[in-house]
């Protein structure tokens, strides 16, 4: 029999690592595929913020691939993924995470990939009952069916709890050597990791993306609400991860950098936004995201900028405002008192 080939959906977490290892142990050639949605929790803010410089900045999917000694194909799905986030047929999880639609979409992309690259089947690290919305016994056939992968989708960690798939029926893999994990407990995974002598693996706390994060989801909801539609660009969703977001009025919000790394990052957006920075004192860079910005709005944005500068207790702070045509003007303002920035304004 010629060596069979599988592609494994690698998230960077333990489950996909184990699922891949289990199949490799059966002599299958495995390569990894990882999808970049724009919402992935991969060091973005860690990479930017100076205070997080010491944190591990490795990309977990790449790291997992290296541990497994497999190739990893990282696929940019930012554009196609928008329709999943804006309009999920199966709805959202606890926040704005469209997990079931997301899984179907990723398996569908993997199925297209195996057809283009002459691979035989797909594996995922899914475990029945692990996630309340997307990893239930009832959702497993939904994912296989709606993605088009059908019985070419094998879940090695819980295969014994599911009907046999083609790789099992055709003896490409030995079903007896697959697993029957179920439920939320991580113990079976930990003990399998121990068996494989894996010690250092990522344990992402809040799932694989920012859409599961309450704070992030509320900033995204705010963006959609005040724009009047759910369209977004990659820059929009990246900016939601950076700085303080303060919406003093419906027509605009300000994004205020919290430290030097963020200031440097926001500087890259100077041509797209009106921006402000204090010139009499050291301070943040502020972007204004909004429409029909009046002089009064600019003054308020300047006062907020001054509030987060080293002149926060000064009587007056001079702030430079630069518009999108790069025309600049200076204003001298009294910094906002902390109580003037209402709690509701913070997103």
């Amino acid at each position: 029999m010629t060596q069979k080939k599988a592609v494994s959906l690698i998230s960077g977490g333990l489950d996909s690592l184990l699922a891949t290892k289990v199949i490799q142990e059966q002599g299958i050639h495995v390569e990894g595929i990882n999808f970049f949605t724009g919402f992935c929790v991969e060091g973005h803010t860690h990479a930017i913020r100076k205070k997080d410089k010491q944190k591990q900045k490795r990309n977990n999917a790449l790291w997992v691939a290296e541990q497994l000694n497999i190739k990893l194909h990282i696929v940019d799905i930012v554009e196609e993924y928008k329709s999943i986030v804006m309009n999920p047929k199966h709805g959202y999880g606890a926040h704005l995470n469209p997990c079931l639609d997301c899984k179907i979409f990723m398996v569908k992309k993997a199925h297209e990939w195996i057809k283009e690259n002459n691979f035989d089947f797909i594996i995922t690290g899914e475990v029945i009952g692990q996630r309340p919305k997307s990893q239930r016994k009832e959702t497993m056939p939904v994912i296989s069916g709606k993605s088009g992968a059908g019985d070419l989708l094998l879940r090695p960690l819980c295969a014994k709890n599911l009907p046999a798939t083609r790789p099992e029926l055709e003896n490409w893999v030995d079903r007896e050597k697959l697993y029957d994990f179920s439920g939320r407990s991580r113990k079976p995974q930990m003990s399998l990791a121990e068996q494989f002598e894996l010690e250092d693996y990522a344990q992402p706390a809040g799932g694989c993306c920012f859409l599961t994060d309450e704070n992030y989801a509320s900033k995204l909801s705010d963006l959609w609400k005040f724009r009047g539609n759910r369209e977004y660009e990659l820059d929009d969703i990246i900016l939601l991860k950076i700085g303080r977001h303060i919406r003093p009025k419906p027509n605009f919000k300000v994004i205020v950098s919290r430290e030097e790394g963020e200031t440097r990052f926001l500087e890259g957006y100077k041509k797209q936004f009106i921006y402000l920075h204090s010139i009499s004192h050291k301070g943040p860079l502020t972007l204004i995201d909004g429409d029909e910005i009046s002089d009064e709005d600019l003054l308020l944005a300047a006062q907020i900028t001054a509030r987060f500068s080293q002149g926060r207790t000064a009587d007056q702070v001079t702030v430079e405002i630069i518009d999108k045509k790069q025309q600049s003007k200076e204003v001298t303002v009294k910094p906002c008192h902390p109580n003037d920035i209402l709690n509701d304004w913070y997103l």
């Binding site: 992935c40 991969e42 060091g43 973005h44 990479a47 990282i74 940019d76």
Partner: peptide, 13 residues
């Protein structure tokens, strides 16, 4: 420049 991981890796790939 300005792209955040994993985009630089994707562009290299």
């Amino acid at each position: 420049q300005r792209l955040l991981c994993p985009l630089p890796v994707i562009r290299v790939q």
